[in-house]
Design a protein around this nucleic acid. Sequence first.
DNA 1: GGCCGCATCCATCGAAAGGTTGAGGTGGCC
DNA 2: GGCCACCTCAACCTTTCGATGGATGCGGCC
Lengths: 209, 209
Amino acid sequence: MSTVRLLLADDHPIVRAGLRAVLEGEPDFEVVAEAPTAERAVALAGELDVDVVLMDLQFGSGMGGTQATATITARSGAPRVLVLTTYDTDVDILAAIEAGATGYLLKDTPPDELADAVRTAAAGRSALGPEIAQRLMDRVRRPTEALSLREIEVLQLVAEGLSNQQISERLFLSQATVKSHLVHVYAKLGVDSRTAAVATATARGLIRR
Amino acid sequence: MSTVRLLLADDHPIVRAGLRAVLEGEPDFEVVAEAPTAERAVALAGELDVDVVLMDLQFGSGMGGTQATATITARSGAPRVLVLTTYDTDVDILAAIEAGATGYLLKDTPPDELADAVRTAAAGRSALGPEIAQRLMDRVRRPTEALSLREIEVLQLVAEGLSNQQISERLFLSQATVKSHLVHVYAKLGVDSRTAAVATATARGLIRR
DNA sequence: GGCCGCATCCATCGAAAGGTTGAGGTGGCC
DNA sequence: GGCCACCTCAACCTTTCGATGGATGCGGCC
């Protein structure tokens, strides 16, 4: 088995040090570089001979990890990108996969599972953490839970602090219609109040914050 | 200078490895143990001879870092607790200080600053990251706009979708008290409903999520 | 064509949750 | 002592919210 050449992209020095410590314990891994920003990760992935990029999604400023993933994987002969982040919201996961990520893991993954995932990704097979796989299963299993465009539109305004009255004016609807949309939202999200709906919707990344 | 004995409390193995790697580079530091849960951190802080606990606030499940901090620092001869987390919202910061934390740093702190902060904490002096210090300065500069700890606590639960009834049960208060806090929050934030309060509070980074 | 599911839209109504007012107790600070 | 901010609570009132029920139009499917 040949050695896997790695690039670590994370804005936290501590996390980079942790990844390095964990991964360099594996004889078949070699960390060739670290990137503290998404831009730097894109540049290094192009310059160096890298097999797998470990990519965080949240960077303090500048380009995000998702966009960096898309940019890197768009090139021919590009390395695999294994997303390694803290959050498991639907938006993040779907966007990352859409952007061409080969895998998606959470940062609380045990070191040995992480190493396995890196090898899987290096081989070109998709590597998803168990929680992530579960989320994707849930999505395809219950497609009815998806909110309609109009429902999301209303819910977004609720999250911005508007009352039903204000929302109805903004969208040229009657209050009754606004309430109707919200009732459907509650049913789909399994909650029974506007604040709870906003909470779970943001947790799932359904609406903007 | 005597050596500083450290306990690392974080649910992410990778972060623990990173902290260990960074801190063991310092000749005057010794990592005596790691804790993957808040409960374990409390136990180890009591059993072992520890000078400083590096404490995360978010643990996947069970006790939170804030409560663990309070429990640890309540004992006599307790170690100093240095909070090391990702978020710099007012809730987290104030609650941690209230719980007896000696310092508060963000995880993107450079290794050398981290080492300095650990020494400062070990000496019993408070160690705050620059962003944290700035937030606290802003609070004292504009005291009328600042929310009290209790108000933020209530507002945080509102943002998580709880009703006044649920909040009162969670905090062992009457509903009247919860409403009273919220009225003050509305006045300070210049809004007139719970959802609007959540919206502006999150925009200002007063609460999490 | 006829049926069904779904999204969008609307009216009515009762109740509960939320918001207002007022007020007491504590502790810090000048 | 006097002032102020914070935390706590009770009782009242009302507005908003959520529940219920129903209408329309569109698209897919048998």
